[in-house]
Design a protein around this nucleic acid. Sequence first.
RNA 1: GGCCCGUUGGUCAAGCGGUUAAGACACCGGCCUCUCACGCCGGUAACACCAGUUCGAUUCUGGUACGGGUCACCA
Length: 508
Amino acid sequence: MTELEKNWFEEKEARIPHNEVRTRFAPSPTGYMHIGNLRTALYTYLIARHAGGKFILRIEDTDQKRLVSDAIAVIKRTMDSCGLDYDEGPDVGGPVAPYVQTERRDYYKKYAELLIEKGHAYRCFCSEERLASLHETDANAKYDRHCLSLSPEEIQQKLDAGEPYVIRQLIPDGSTTFSDQVYGEITVDNKEIEDQILLKSDGLPTYNFANVIDDHLMGITHVVRGSEYLSSSPKYNLLYEAFGWDIPEYVHCAPVMYNDPATGEVRKMSKRCGDPSYEDLLNQGYLSEAVVNYVALLGWSPTGDIAEQEIFSKKELIDAFDISAISKSPSAFDTEKLNHFNSIYMKALPAEEFCALAEPFVHSVLPGADVAEIAALVQSRVTVLTEIPDMIRFFRELPEYSTELFCNKKNKLDGVQSKKILEDLEPMLEALPKWDAESIHDTIYAYAEKLAEAEGVKLNKVLGRVMWPLRIAVSGQSVTPGGAIEICTILGRHESIERINIAMGKLA
RNA sequence: GGCCCGUUGGUCAAGCGGUUAAGACACCGGCCUCUCACGCCGGUAACACCAGUUCGAUUCUGGUACGGGUCACCA
C-alpha cells in the first residue's frame, strides 16, 4: 500500500462519527414504498430518535438495470409525507457524504483491494458461462474456488490482458455466530456460505459489500432491515472481522403479510399481487398519520403501562419505541383494522382540517355545495375519504328506490301509514315561513307531539315513526348521513317538497 | 433439497414457570338515538402436535407438522 493510499483510508476512517446512535434507511431507487419498507423505515427512524441519535438516508443504486431517473425526489417526497425527517442524506449532505452509492464507487474498489491485500478476498476471472455450467451439474453448487489457486503471475497476466474479473470474499473454515436484537444468537457453519462476489465486473459493489463498507464508514450503530437478510448476516460478520471493524447491532424485522379481503388469502405483501403501497393507501383516502400509526403496531407493541395504548402520535412513538418489543413472527396487514385507525383519525381531525380534506370529494358530486355543512354530517361516519361521494350522491339526485323502504317493523310502519304521515307533513312544511333546521324541527315535533297525545304514548314512541318516512322520502335510501331534518335543511324547501310528493306518488 | 427463522382466538397482539390467558379489530347481543354511524354495556372465540425437564408448563429442551426466509456479477 502506498503512502497516498494509506492516507486515503485514514481520512475516511477519521470522518466516522462516534458516540451516538446512528441508523440509516437505505432504499433502492424504485420510487415506490412498500408497506414493509415503510415499516422498516419507521422502525429505523424511531430507534434513532428514541436514542436521540441520527437518522440517515442513503440511496442504494448499484443495480444499473433498475435505475429510475427522479428516484431521489420520489423517496424524499415519501419520507416527508410519512414524517420521517432525516439528518443526513443525498440532498442535505452530512459528515460522511456522499450518500448515494454510485457516487462512492471508488470506495468499494479500494476496500475490496484492501481485503485482497489482507488475504480475505481474491480476484475471480471465471466467465458467467463457467459459473452457469457449475450450477448445471449441481443446482446447489457453490463456487468451486477455481481462481483461488491462480498464481500471482497468472493473475497479472490476465489483468494485463484486460480480462474482466470480480472480487470474491474468501470464506474461512469454521462457523460464524452473530447476534440479532430481535432473533438472538444464530450460528451457522461456514460451509453453508459461498465465496460471495464483493465487487462486480462493472466495478460496482454488490449490495452485501456496499452495505458493510457504507455502514462502517457512516458510523451506523444499528442495522435495521427485513428478515430476508438474516441468512446473509454471517457474511457481514466475516467481512467486518476481516477488516477488523466493530460489528453493529442487527435488527431484523419479520415480513409484513397481506390479508387479502377479496380472497381471504394471506401472503407476503407485494406490489405484483396488487397489494396496496403507501401511496395507494393515500389515494384510497387514508390519512398518513393513521397509516403510520397502524404500521408501527404491525410487528411491534408497546409494553409496560402503555401496553394497551393503540393511538400514538409520532412523538409518543418515539418515546415508547423499544427494540426488544419487536415481534419475530410475520404479521398480516389487515385493512379492517386500518379502517378502524383511519376513522379514529378522521373523527379526531379539527373540523376545518377535515373540511379541507373532504372538499374535493364533496365537490366532485355536489359542485356548489357548502362543504362545511356536508362535512359536519359526514365526518363522524366516514372511514375513508373516498367513500364520501357515494355517501352524499343522493343530495344531487334522488336515487331509484323501492317503497319497501317505507316498511319498518321497529317503528311499526308500512306503506299506508307512511303515506299518511307524509300527507300530513307536506302542507305544514310547505307553509313554513322560514326554511331552516329549527323551523323544520319544531314543526315535526309539534306534529309528533300531537300524535303522541292522541295515542296516549310518549313522544319518543312516535318520533321514529314520523322521521322514518320523511327521511326515506327525501333521501331515497335507508342509510343516510344525518337524519331527516338535516337532510331537508340541506336540500332546501323546493327539492324537499318535491321529493315528498314523489314519495306520496309512489305510495299511491 | 441444505441451512436459518417462526407458530397464543378469523386478524393484530399481551404474557417472559403457578394468570379466571390482557387489550384492540371484526363478529353477535343490548342501551342510546330523528336513520345509519358514533358512544356505552355485555358476549362468542386462542396457547399447532408429541415427548422430556419440573411439584407445576403457553412460558424451558428435543422432535413432528405447518408457514416463512435464503442459497445470483438483485437488492
